[in-house]
Amino acid sequence: MLSAGRRAFSALARPTLRNATSPALARSPAALRRLLSALAILEQRDGKLNTGSLSAVSAARKLGGSVHGFIAGSNIKPVAAEAAKVDGLEKVIAVENGAYDKGLPENYAPLLVENIKKGGYTHVIAGNTAFGKNVMPRVAALLDSQQISDITAIQDDKTFVRPIYAGNAIATVESSDPIKVITVRGTAFPAAEIGSGTAAVEDGVDPKVDSPTEWVSEDLARSDRPDLATASKVVSGGRGLKSKEDFDRIMLPLADALGAAVGASRAAVDSGYADNSLQVGQTGKVVAPQLYMAVGISGAIQHLAGMKDSKVIAAINKDADAPIFQVADVGLVGDLFEKVPELTEKLNKA
């Protein structure tokens, strides 16, 4: 079996790292000897692995050291077995305890801290999801580490890139903390694949801290359409839709014709046309699909923050001067109430 140091070295030589310029790692053999080891936090819901959280594994692999996965909840064995197949994971730490099912930070953070300390990890990585945003800063505080949020690139083991000012500036930051606590932007690190990995599954430590917070209920929007955060196509509606009825009547058939997820601008959400969870933007979801189609959306910077990394942006708006046209690869000026149904019909015929 390869030693950890050699594993790190062979990982560095992988072509996937070609783009990640890592001068510190390349320059100093000492950095290699310092045994990078990353813990990727995996999420599960009702006994199913949340594949969105596998972005954390992709990011952890870019560091070049060993990568362990962490998962906790009730009936965790089958989930851990699934996680063990994820490409690039060397080990899966699993904690069987229903107290962690809802990801309450008051007991989940101490749980992570105990396992991080036991495993001696240098990097702890989670997705910048509702769970990651809620739990990881608490973990960071307990470890006295300054978290690095929502990173979009890794330069070397201590240098990371993250957008600030709603994505209008890109900061490169270097961390001096011994344990780096990181959340990653899912659209910048495609989820690791559940492949043919054969990671060992190991029981983690369970400090069994009581949570002073009680989980009461949830109300999740059910949808048969693709998930907004990971969809390859997104159609998004704005204030121009005028009402919830019109939003549903115009946008949903278009989404179905394209096999796309539905998103919305803040204006549309605030006006009650669409559910909060569909909001795309600085304070909502960040998406980067192959195709983003903005319908009746002017293109405020807060909205652009959530979609400007899309591969192709299309816009339909009646205002030819709307800022959305400055970023759209293809724009159509016109009344969405005529153009969108026509588009839907032509897509369905094709």
């Binding site: 809802k102 917070t213 009680e214 989980w215 009461v216 949830e218 999740l220 909060n276 969870s277």
Partner: peptide, 10 residues
Amino acid sequence: EVDGGVETVR
């Protein structure tokens, strides 16, 4: 507000 909807904690 969480991914996909809302949850209530006490």
